[in-house]
Design a protein around this nucleic acid. Structure first.
Lengths: 334, 334
DNA sequence: CTGTTAGCGCATTCAC
DNA sequence: GTGAATGCGCTAACAG
């Protein structure tokens, strides 16, 4: 049925060891023998069995990646960065959605480990001690991707969410805004939620603006929650002059909310967000936002992982990629 | 170093066969023995080696999926559908981007096959004879996903792109439009390109409207190409009263092009598209569009694959999922 | 219900 | 340069 290395050996009149050598590009084979073997391979349509190879060599050339949700544009972009670099280094990736649910995350980490992946890229919600516990049983490198653990003990690549938010709000302040509302993610989410909220607060503080609880609404990152949050702000006795949103999508919801209310962006209310997804420049007005290099986060973390897997020593196992303020049309000076 | 089934056997005072049985939930084990084994597993922190299992059982419980580009929202949605169902049936998926490039597609199919995947989901551009050739060497089931081969010989799940486009244009016609332009995808693309263009033409024909070449522009599915195509139409001596776009994204570009030109959607020009991505309802005016059930395409194709892998007999190996016209705000009656 | 015995297809010493 | 032998960790008959 399936043709093995044995069949090729017989066909070529050599030993299986020799076939193995040519398949693995081992230089210690006479060119003529190599040729014979290649011909036999061709004739038989031999295809190496990577599973057998994996068992014998203890390497699978595949890495596991756990991701919250591949249908989310942000993560899909990271995934593409991961896959491109993985491909470049001849790794394949096993992709698992875990929806930021701790139980599911830990479960998939374990099945990935059972599959003997050579390394793991973890992208999730909070990294708890239970996660760390599961990671510890792995004897392959693991790097956190767009996620960090509070202890800061694991290799990771991310951006500085707090600083990104800070910069966004600071930009608003520099444009003369003093009453700035925020549409936040859930505060349970350490990166997209809590950290960005902290950045907002710190920017306010540094500018001597009093923090006002009624100026903060928590959304779920989605368009609709942006709409709802903004509706709330619009009905406040003292409307904010600017709104900072933790994601582009909620920002777009906010813009539409404002427009439906009969006001204009940015003439009446400015809107600023974080992400710079493709959508940000596909709406009118185009969104001013802080760009996060999602593709790069994926690419860099995968690159880091390859180094770890090859046991090369890395100087910097925790890297923070720079963010960048992109000024477009949704903010105006007061 | 790594603890094997042998170690567990010794620890539990049973044979490796018994350990294998409990790990694989074989009922033929006395509860008490089972308990002993579980305890040994726990104590030793044993984790089954799926690679070894794969070699011995000739099943890997992983399927390969080749996809054009995971960072494209459309495909990411399909991928999510695939993964959800895969997960449900305890399969993992190896994800490979192939950018609709034939050489890359064939290459990844081969490496996926080397990895002994139990099945393959193929999502790509044109399925050529070379593809078919590569597929033929596989001795695992393969199903095409959001793609079909012209010969119609392979299992596949897709929507009827021609009919979807036809229905979209017909809806425009029923609203009284007679001069309808189209922003098409490349005609080399059999599904999103050629088929939708054919649907457009047929709808015109059926309504007795003459086909006008200058009313068709080919885009690349992206926002900017929608902007450009629309600019062209706007400068025509006789402007169309409606525009049909092969994708949401180009449609949004068209809308903005129209607005920038000083006209209104749908008051001055109606816009209709195909896709119904999340974005369609995140722009103003909300896009009227023909919905494609991308998630379902992924889910159904994965479900079909599981049946094929289990050698269940399937009545219908080629399934066309229904599309649906979603009327929102970008079309008005003439 | 449980143990023994063979492989699964290949990489990898170790000889020659 | 090349071949023979061994084992990777597990499943799957086959006995008992």
């Amino acid at each position: 049925m399936t043709v093995t290395i044995y069949d090729v050996a017989r066909e070529a009149g050599v030993s299986m060891a020799t076939v193995s050598r040519v398949v693995n590009n081992n230089p210690n084979v006479k060119p003529q023998t190599r040729k014979k073997v290649f011909e036999a391979i061709e004739r038989l349509g031999y295809r190496p069995n990577a599973v057998a190879r994996g068992l014998a060599s203890k390497k699978t050339t595949t890495v596991g990646v756990v991701i919250p949700d591949i249908s989310n544009a942000i993560f899909a972009e990271v995934a593409r960065g991961i896959e491109d670099i993985a491909n470049m280094y001849h790794y394949n990736i096993i992709l698992c959605n875990a929806d930021k649910r701790k139980d599911k995350e830990i479960r998939v980490v374990n099945t990935l480990l059972e599959k003997q992946v050579d390394g793991l890229l973890f992208m999730g919600g909070t990294v708890t001690d239970d996660h760390l516990q599961a990671f510890k049983t792995a004897n392959v490198p693991i790097v956190l991707c767009a996620t960090t653990d509070e202890h800061g003990t694991m290799p990771a690549v991310d951006i500085d969410h707090e600083a990104a938010a800070y910069d966004a709000v600071k930009a608003l302040i520099e444009q003369g805004h003093r009453s700035i509302a925020m549409i936040s993610g859930t505060l349970q989410d350490p990166a997209n939620g809590y950290a960005r909220f902290q950045g907002y607060k710190r920017a306010l503080e540094d500018a001597g603006i009093a923090y006002d609880e009624s100026y903060v609404r928590v959304g779920n990152y989605r368009y609709e929650s942006g709409v709802d949050a903004m509706k709330y702000f619009l009905e406040l006795p003292k409307r904010p002059s600017a709104v900072f949103s933790a994601t582009d999508e909620m920002a777009i919801g906010a813009v539409h909310s404002i427009q439906d209310f009969g006001l204009k962006v940015p003439e009446d209310i400015s809107v600023m967000s974080v992400d710079n997804t493709r959508m940000a420049s596909m709406v009118r007005p185009k969104l001013s936002t802080v760009a996060q290099p999602m593709y790069d986060i994926g690419a860099v973390s995968m690159r880091l992982l390859t180094k770890l897997m090859k046991k090369e020593n890395v100087e910097q196992a925790r890297v923070i990629l720079p963010h960048e303020l992109i000024s477009r049309q949704s903010v105006r000076a007061l």
